[in-house]
């Protein structure tokens, strides 16, 4: 296979304690650390390993977002992606439009594989990989915790509610990755310097001929109803008494 496309989304860092803005317009992002969506980092790591095993010739990192997403693409290039494409949008963009972007790029580049995170940790939609497979008319293997490429096929272990399901898909295909697929590499300083010279192309979503819609509109954000701190018990027998009183055991 020649090319692998990897999706990279800029999101609020995994370790940030997210707070809803007081006016309900969204979550606080001012001065908040932004990173690559952790699932996307795993997707990129897998793509790099496939390339390093001689089974792909080029890894292309693609982000759809505001110009700030350049930072995350540069990190992706430092990890080892060969080049990057930033498809710029104003503000947020809906999952179906993102899937349309990936379809256009997958066809234009002749990608053999599109590797995406199984969900982004901000919107938690978990839609784009499945939508891309539908629009592109290619196989989907979601929630991958293991995979191997053999010629024109990929064998994928999927984490499903009942256990681990194995499927075999013909390439080109869309694979969405889960947490246990691999552990992404750390970026080294020399790689960050080298990444600055790698190509990063910018193109607007309108130039790809994609119009959003029909969009599910977001209204106000609210904090979830918090649980109240309960009581402390001193020992196991007090715990058992309390459970008995509440009729829970």
């Amino acid at each position: 296979m020649e090319k692998i496309i990897v999706g990279i989304k800029r999101v609020v860092d995994y370790n940030v304690r997210v707070r809803v803005r007081s006016d309900g317009s969204g979550v606080e992002t001012d001065g908040v650390k932004m990173s690559i969506n952790p699932f996307d980092e795993i997707a990129l790591e897998e793509a790099l390993r496939i390339k390093e095993a001689g089974k792909a010739s080029e890894v292309i990192a693609v982000s759809i977002g505001t110009p700030e997403a350049q930072q995350q693409l540069r990190t992706g290039l430092a990890m080892g992606a060969d080049r990057a494409i930033l498809v710029t949008v104003d503000g947020t963009v809906d999952p179906l439009s993102i899937a349309r972007v990936f379809k256009v790029l997958a066809e234009k580049e002749g990608a053999g594989l599109v590797l995406l995170g199984k969900q982004a940790i901000d919107g938690d939609h978990s839609q784009v990989p499945q939508m891309l497979a539908a629009l592109w008319g290619r196989p989907q293997a979601t929630f991958a915790s293991g995979m191997s490429i053999d010629g024109s096929k990929a064998r994928v272990q999927r984490e499903v509610d009942a256990g681990i399901e194995t499927v075999e898909v013909e390439l080109p295909a869309v694979i969405s990755v889960d947490l246990r697929l691999n552990e992404p590499r750390y970026v080294k300083l020399p790689d960050i310097m080298k990444a600055k010279k790698k190509p990063l192309e910018e193109i607007s979503i309108a130039d790809l001929g994609i119009e959003a819609g029909p969009v599910v509109t977001e209204g106000s954000y609210a904090s979830p109803e918090g649980r109240q701190r309960g009581v402390r018990v001193d020992d196991v027998s007090a715990l058992v008494n309390l459970l008995n009183e509440k009729g829970l055991v």
Partner: peptide, 13 residues
Amino acid sequence: VYAGNAIVTVEAP
């Protein structure tokens, strides 16, 4: 959204 740290009201067309 955000791992349940926020709840958003959405409206479909």
